[in-house]
Design a protein around this nucleic acid. Structure first.
Lengths: 332, 332
DNA sequence: CCCGGCGATGTTTACGTCAACATGGACCGG
DNA sequence: CCGGTCCATGTTGACGTAAACATCGCCGGG
């Protein structure tokens, strides 16, 4: 038993044809006689042939692979987006190469860099909160197609993202429509462009409605940070409506309110953002802004493939939907 | 400006050396004169050289890439495990190629198959609940190193997993030690080997303690399923201690208990499994079994790399830790 | 009956890299 | 001062594939 993996030449010998004919069969070309094709396919099965993707990539000059640069800590949303990207890529028979960002501060070549410094992907989707990156730190090879999700717009690349502004506005307006005088906001971390846009949209919505804008409370997406702000807000009877920039912070917030004896939604209304699977089972079920990570992921892949093909695409903005459950009510 | 990407030959011409010397520099060989090395590195920078990983893979016969076969729906645990795998792989300068399983029932070549049918990875980590797979459906190429996480042990591959049995036993014993007469169990789906092992261990622990074993309630990991079983359990005053096979089901369960006016932990004690980030912020904070997805991921990579290198490794079992919070108390 | 054209198949070559072998000069011990 | 050794560097070829071009036989129109 030879230790070498079988190549086209082995199949060709087995089937009694030339290597080129094997190649044609492997690539589904039409100009092959049906009987010959069968013979070749049969030979492939017999010798256990699997095409060598490295040789193919070398010959063609394309890798049929897209890289995804991700932060090392998987947030709920990023996981789902990654999955959508993977599904969309597979549908186009592209592979996904994961490029986790290791220590961002580690000036050394590390993480995503290692792979970006070699030809191995046809394009890259950046799925990190851009502000996390020192501009000098991520040096993308020129000419490499790139699509950015959740962008700071610092880079001149196509951007695909949820319509953060519309989502935050719908949450804020929902609370105002219920009769609350104003809406407090627990924002995401300042490095996040998504957090920034939600915060600005909340602010704008309040100003348009001529309401007072309470001071911004800044969290870090974690339930922990929502909890901490909640402990303070519980002491302020004026805070009757709170919009948390994601569901996890809303969870921590509600936890603090319960602890302090403030009832949700009787005393305080809470709205989240994301609509994670668990949100409907929080206590009480959370009113939140649903965003479609699936749509973002597949739009990003579509935009990247278009860019690889040399086309130009406009930025994509994916709509949100307000899901009203039981954590919001008119003030008493 | 030529549209071709620069190759070693271009660098060699620029630096006035042979291609082989460029190769030596690129691979960090020591037997190159320091002055020459500098000259080559400089030339690389000038022409914007990036090694072609396809050509290298073709020449070497290895891809420095490991494939991860994952279910399309990202569960909380899988996401974290994937991330740990990616981090560990990058540390060994291996790439991760994601192979999402599309429709499992789709007899057609699809999803992971497409890529498994070509040489593109040096090994594979299977990160799906094995029972989901019809055995005939996943046909791994012979000779391809494989490591299985959460295995049904149907396949003869090294297995890396959390010590499910010990974790479930510690949860069950904790509840018995508090003074509960017996412990109810909301199990994961029957296709999951992890769920099966937790259920069996719960059963064994009860039998050893000579307690009555209540009928098993079977969920599907979702908060929804925990909620549904919770609605029924709330009506049974004998059910004072419940062990849910994951945190999400525990969340749904507690939600149902609240709705039915049963207090946690005064009336009913609840234990989960996983210790997801949010668990400490549930209401009440959830007592649960923490498992280290990070340890599982890095152990899987280590085992796979060993297998690729031709070594043999024993199965790895990663320990768990019981985290006691406020959802458990002695019966009243 | 011949020739043009077309479809099936074969032959040659190049993609970028690196192992193996070759070369040639410097240095060292006897 | 000579043979041997070692180190830096160069030359050749092969990895598996598919594009480009070549060949061959058949069919139909004039």
């Amino acid at each position: 038993m030879s230790s070498r993996v079988p190549s086209m030449a082995d199949v060709a010998r087995e089937a009694g044809v030339s290597g080129q004919t094997v190649s044609r069969v492997a690539n589904g070309r039409t100009n092959v006689d049906e009987a010959t094709r069968e013979r070749v396919l049969d030979a492939m099965r017999r010798v256990g042939y699997r095409p060598n993707s490295a040789a193919r990539a070398l010959r063609i000059g394309r890798f049929r692979t897209i890289g995804v640069i991700m932060a090392a800590v998987p947030t709920f949303g990023n996981s789902r987006t990654l999955n959508a990207i993977a599904a969309a890529a597979v549908a186009e028979s592209f592979s996904i190469s994961l490029m986790p960002l290791t220590r961002p501060s580690q000036g050394e070549v590390s993480g995503a860099f290692t792979r970006l410094n070699e030809q191995a992907v046809d394009g890259v989707i950046i799925l990190i909160e851009q502000h996390q990156l020192d501009e000098s730190e991520i040096q993308l090879p020129t000419g490499l197609p790139v699509v950015v999700i959740d962008s700071s717009a610092r880079y001149a690349h196509p951007v695909v993202d949820t319509d953060q502004a519309a989502g935050a506005a719908s949450a804020t307006r929902h609370l105002l429509d219920l009769g609350h005088r104003t809406v407090w906001h627990i924002a995401g971390p300042p490095q996040s462009y998504a957090a920034e846009r939600r915060r600005k949209s909340w602010q704008t919505t309040l100003k348009r409605a001529k309401r007072e804008v309470p001071p911004v409370l800044t969290g870090d997406w974690s339930a922990q940070s929502g909890y901490e702000h909640g402990l303070r807000l519980a002491g302020d009877p004026a805070a009757t409506a709170i919009f948390a920039a994601n569901d996890q912070m809303a969870l921590g917030l509600m936890h603090a309110l319960h602890e302090k004896g403030r009832s949700v939604p009787a005393d305080v209304s809470v709205v989240g953002f994301d609509d994670m699977d668990e949100a409907a089972y929080f206590w009480p079920p959370l009113t939140t802004v649903r965003q479609s990570f699936e749509a973002v992921g597949s739009a990003a892949v579509a935009a990247l493939l278009a860019e690889i093909a040399g086309e130009v695409r406009a930025a994509v903005s994916v709509p949100t939907e307000l899901i009203v459950r039981s954590s919001t009510a008119p003030p008493n």
